[in-house]
Nucleic acid binder design. Structure first.
Lengths: 343, 343
DNA sequence: AGTGAATATGCATACGTATGCACCTTATAT
DNA sequence: ATATAAGGTGCATACGTATGCATATTCACT
């Protein structure tokens, strides 16, 4: 396999011009005459020349690479987000370098180091937090960070989330309006802001309706743990008549346990509500009522924020919350005369 | 935001040594004395120095970046593969640059060009084919390619697939053994080898059992098209008693239509078999019988093949087929006395 | 102590591109 | 026609690192 690299020098030679001229032809906005452009482009085409992005980045200091840190792709919300992020960035001339990471501090630190080695122009973390030390290193390296679907109290870190507190609250008032009395919660991981905020909003909404949680278990955003939580919640005789599960991924597991292990009817015996509105939630097998995280708008906000920092040298750290509607489907008892309008 | 790059020169200065020495300390296998290593590492640590991968790649000609081209992540098989590929490559010091692509020739060509601009060391396409022209360009650039889950007659392209023909055949004999008489097929996209091979194997298996397909519709690997196909298949009075669907992603849609639109029982009225064995297939809501594509082994083979080419200058193009078992679950009528052993 | 081999180190250069500067060409206005 | 600005072009250098070559140091052995 003979590798014949063709460089701007080769093109210059063939076109009978200087290397700078070639470079300028391939640099948008540089000053070149039409005649020159034509000559160079023809020579480039004949040789099959394409600029070396890496060499370019050495000078410009911009790699057009965005690092994406993500913990797991099993929850459908993330591949969906990844696909949308990648498309949006690709349309703007950037590309995503993927870093899978186990969600513990040591793993993240190690991976984030590798990330910076690649001179990424920016970093998006999907549902992953950062240590202070790390945030400092990114800041020092001048690499902007956006936390996608994760909040963190650090005024160097941009973040884009749905309005988790308000979402939890909406679900609470919806369940309360449906006349549910014994309401339980299988929470998202308490180590993440999303889980905590949803729970807090949910509790606030219940209180507002004069209700109280009868049980709350941390599901860790994991299918198996959520399933166990469901088994535990429904082990006694005093069963909940409604469960809010911290995300759809866990909610599916919970519904499976309720229906196929315990023989309960959803929503006949118990209402189930999720969070995210991944596409599977709308499939008839689950038909899950859930609070939609508007991934399109979240992605849009993420990309806009990040590129603003990269290209305009942004200075104002954004903490963006995006409101989403409750998607009412067949997994819940629907309140009498509940307005069709989305919450 | 002040960006202070710290380079090997800075480290050299502080440690009182030459830049070459610093480079060697960070190059595994280079000759350095323990004393030197210690001095340099301390200085590097104090300054927070890390080698610039991009600058390094300019000299070595290796970027340690693998381009991954993928069409869509909705089918759970792909995020799963992506996660595993990324982990496996990461463990070997490589990272994945993601390129989303619409599955048409023009889009692929455009994207593949950008890919080569990044000087990737290798390319993996997930369920995406390549034009001859493109294969030639990759070969000319010395960039090895592995097609993951896609076959193509081109002796420059490595490929790793499951044994799709044999898989289709296994499913046919299983359904035949179950006493099904009116067997239909909702095929994978006929534009892809996987779909064609599964269908061919399926037909061969039926013939072997003295049966014949009563209907076959191209589902294009798309949920909505598969759902329509199911509606069409079951519109008349002479309904199939078994359907083999070209992948799980479509099979879920088919089951949804059968159960929730047509009120049929699966497997009471009709058996359904899928292909892939994504994790959702084993969830009780579907409990889908399906032929497992062993993604772990496929990923392993893909990574091994690719890195062999990259690091050892491989020369023998691999066309690897990996056999997978039929996972027998509740979506089919199970043949009397069918051995528990996997097919 | 002296010899040769083996190991460490520094110097200089190369990788492929972008860009400041100086120069030259062409267009524009006077 | 001349003066001036505006636009093109080439030269030289820089980006941050790896590496061949020559030299300096260490070591084992006689």
């Amino acid at each position: 396999m003979t590798v014949e690299k063709v460089t701007s020098v080769d093109v210059a030679k063939r076109a009978g011009v200087s290397q700078s001229a070639v470079s300028r032809v391939f640099t948008p906005g540089a000053s070149v005459s039409p005649k020159m452009a034509e000559k160079v482009l023809r020579a480039a085409d004949e040789l099959g020349y394409r600029p070396n992005v890496l060499a370019r980045s050495l000078i410009t200091g911009r790699s057009r690479i965005i690092g994406l840190v993500v913990a797991y792709l099993e929850n459908q919300f993330y591949p969906d987000a990844l696909e949308k992020l990648s498309n949006a960035l690709q349309a703007r001339g950037y590309h995503i370098l993927v870093f899978m990471v186990s969600n513990d501090e040591a793993g993240i630190d190690q991976v984030m180091g590798e990330l910076l080695d690649y001179q990424v122009d920016g970093i998006i973390t999907a549902s992953v937090g950062m240590s202070n030390d790390l945030a400092a290193r990114c800041a020092a390296a001048g690499v902007p960070v956006v936390l996608f679907n994760r909040g963190q109290d650090d005024d160097r870190l941009n973040q884009v989330t749905s309005d988790n507190f308000e979402g939890g609250r909406k679900i609470a008032s919806f369940l309360a309006a449906g006349g549910h009395q014994k309401i339980a919660h299988i929470a998202g991981w308490s180590g993440a802001s999303t889980g905590r905020d949803r729970e807090a909003g949910f509790r606030a909404g219940l209180e507002q309706a004069g209700l109280e949680l009868i049980a709350c278990i941390d599901g860790m955003y994991k299918r198996e743990i959520a399933a166990d939580a469901a088994r535990k919640l429904f082990a006694g005789t005093d069963r909940p008549d409604a469960v809010f599960v911290g995300n759809d991924h866990m909610a599916f597991a919970v519904m499976d346990v309720l229906r196929f292990e315990l023989g309960l009817s959803v929503p006949g015996d118990v209402s189930v509500v999720g969070y995210d509105d991944v596409s599977l939630a709308s499939w008839p097998a689950y038909d899950l009522t859930t609070l939609r995280q508007p991934s399109n708008r979240m992605v849009e906000a993420t990309v806009t924020t990040l590129l603003d920092w990269i290209e305009e040298g942004g200075t104002h750290v954004q903490k963006i919350k995006i409101d989403g509607p409750l998607m009412i489907r067949g997994s819940v008892r629907i309140p009498e005369g509940w307005p069709d309008a989305r919450l």
